[in-house]
Design a protein around this nucleic acid. Structure first.
Lengths: 201, 201
DNA sequence: TGCGTATTTGAATTCCTCTTCAAATGGCTA
DNA sequence: TAGCCATTTGAAGAGGAATTCAAATACGCA
């Protein structure tokens, strides 16, 4: 028998297991048994904690998104220079490679968000928060005279997040030429143009 | 009994039916019975033409992508002015709204492309062709002196397609602010900056 | 017109997943 | 240490989807 755990601990485990299962089988392909296997439990045990699998999947997606976002926030919090912040933020929004679990998880939502309102809301809120993240960096840089923005910070930020998203898909789909480095360079090329800054640091 | 059809005609019908079923239930959620219902047939009949459902799904995705791409090519072929071409191409890459079937179909592939090599190849090949499409417009505009590109045409084109893709996801996920018009304006804002052209036509 | 054949149906079967639940287990507390 | 109770198991069964296939059907062609 698998190690006994408290309700809270087990639920945390299950959310992690669901995250892995979603990545392996897709948000519409995950089965109770997949989650159970990832967690080292039987289906019954999963059901005991989550009588409705779809609720667990939503929680897993939610947790994954929060972690992704918080991690990015934490990284840039360590920096003060707007240039360094911008460059780091761009890099941290891209997958490390085709197998990057965080981005793989997020990508699973793309299609489902069109069919499932909850997923649509989740994804939209992540997008908006990432936009704000960029916007504050750009505004600060502009105020400090480091950036000379060619358009309003909001539009630029929306485009930056959009570029991250799209290259995330390209990388996980294993584009033969566009990898993490190339994608970063493409986004930086845009960022250089619209900030009027070389973004060397 | 449903109307009898020739092998070729029925296969075309089934590909269309599969396309609709994928949009309704997701690429990992489609069932034989879904396709059968969309086609007005029984599961057995579907199986008679496609013993393997996954092959039908790939064909449906492939057909949808080709149609999407050909349609865009045809639209710009009618124009000669690079400015008009660029603006029209940007608009034609975006969904008409959250329910746009072409984009909904493509979006279904995003997540699956990370798990399924066939889908990855399909999606990558569409991306590359769309990039070429933009590249040729930009090159022509540059040659005519209409555009003054701030970066190489390839990079700009990659970013333009990336922006289309990403806003396609935002729109189908029903972002409360970013609809087809707003997305077009955001991409145009990028295009104006990198072409040095107001893109009024 | 009637035959032959490709297509379609529908029922039977198998396979698989979800769900239920009684029993087992093991940690916690008195 | 003993008993309680939350957690987990495993088996049973309910539901549903895929698969198989014999029979029915209707179209093309002689």
């Amino acid at each position: 028998m698998a190690q006994r755990k408290s309700r809270t601990d087990r639920r945390i485990d299950l959310i992690e297991a669901a995250r892995r299962a979603i990545i392996r089988f897709g948000i519409d392909g995950v089965q109770l048994s997949h989650v159970a296997e990832e967690a080292g439990l039987t289906s019954g045990a999963v059901l005991y904690h989550y009588p409705d699998l779809s609720e667990l999947l939503v929680e897993a997606q939610h947790a994954g998104m929060e972690r992704f976002y918080e991690q990015r926030l934490r990284q840039i919090a360590a920096l003060t220079d707007p240039v360094a912040k911008l460059v780091l933020t761009i890099r941290s929004g891209l997958p490390t490679g085709p197998l990057d679990p965080d981005v793989r998880l997020l990508n699973e939502l793309g299609g489902a968000a069109g069919r499932n309102r909850v997923y649509g809301v989740l994804l939209t809120s992540l997008y908006d928060r990432q936009v704000s993240m960029y916007q504050s960096i750009l505004d600060t840089g502009q105020a400090l005279g480091v950036f000379r923005l060619t358009a309003d910070a909001l539009s630029i930020s929306r485009n930056l997040v959009a570029l991250e998203d799209a290259y995330g898909y390209r990388i996980t789909a294993r584009h033969p030429i566009i990898g993490p480095e190339e994608a970063a360079e493409l986004i930086l090329s845009y960022a250089r143009t619209v900030t009027g800054n070389d973004l060397l640091h």
